[in-house]
């Protein structure tokens, strides 16, 4: 019963909350649609925390996405053990990198009085959830090796079953607790992200790449192109 809630109901709740929450926040409070940087208050530790964390989490998330979206490609690729070792090794190294950054960021929030002044309870909760997620992920990589391979028969089809609105709990039901924690915590993070500072993920300023350097705004007349 609990499995049905965690692996068949929670994902839908989380995704709904994420989409509705993000739209709601964007429409009603666009002003708050960003994170509150604390580099101005403390820069040195932020560098060692933020840079490893961000690049680590971006690459690791892209790796997860790749496995979920293109399982057949992955399956073909890892048919040679060397490549499997390579992928797992890289993933593990990146995981350690982001964990290092994350711990430093948490540590920084705890000890820097200036940063504490801008830290809300929810910021701490979020950091702890992320820490649980990272530790669980690395734990899986250590204790249940070759996840890239076995997930192709478990987590990936489960995700596809979720996507096709016919959730098959049995894919997840018999997996170790650590894997379950990693999966459930992921949905929790997705569900709460629009209500936290994580919302800044959606404000990646890609338009900067092609917009003209100068912006001139006319009040009454549209600019002549």
């Amino acid at each position: 019963m609990i499995n049905i809630f965690l692996f068949a109901i929670l994902p839908y709740i989380a995704v709904t909350a994420a989409i509705v929450g993000a739209i709601w926040r964007y429409v009603t409070n666009r002003y708050s649609f960003s994170t509150i940087s604390s580099q101005f208050l403390e820069g040195r530790r932020l560098f060692w925390g933020s840079v490893p964390w961000h690049w680590g989490i971006i690459t690791v998330l892209l790796g997860h996405l790749f496995v979920v979206l293109l399982p057949l490609v992955v399956k073909g690729f890892i048919s040679a053990p060397v490549r499997l070792y390579l992928i797992e090794g890289t993933g593990f190294a990146l995981g350690m990198l982001l964990l290092f950054g994350l711990i430093l960021l948490l540590f920084r929030r705890a000890i820097s009085p200036r940063v504490r002044a801008v830290t809300s309870t929810f910021d701490v909760v979020l950091l702890v959830l992320l820490l649980v997620q990272a530790v669980a992920g690395l734990g899986i990589a250590i204790f249940y090796r070759w996840g890239v391979s076995w997930s192709l028969q478990t987590a990936v089809p489960w995700m596809w079953s979720l996507a096709s609105f016919s959730p098959k709990v049995e894919y997840m039901a018999d997996l170790p607790v650590l894997v379950k924690i990693h999966a459930v915590n992921a949905w929790v993070l997705i569900g709460i992200f629009p209500f936290t500072r994580l919302v800044h993920i959606l404000s990646i300023p890609l338009a900067y790449i092609w917009r003209p350097y100068q912006r001139v705004t006319w009040y009454r007349r549209q600019p002549q192109q």
Binding site: Y208, R215, V216, T217, W218, Y219, R220, R221, P223
Partner: peptide, 11 residues
């Protein structure tokens, strides 16, 4: 400005 939030008022 990556967000394009800063602008020059033409008037």
């Amino acid at each position: 400005c990556p967000s394009g939030a800063i602008y020059k008022r033409a008037e």
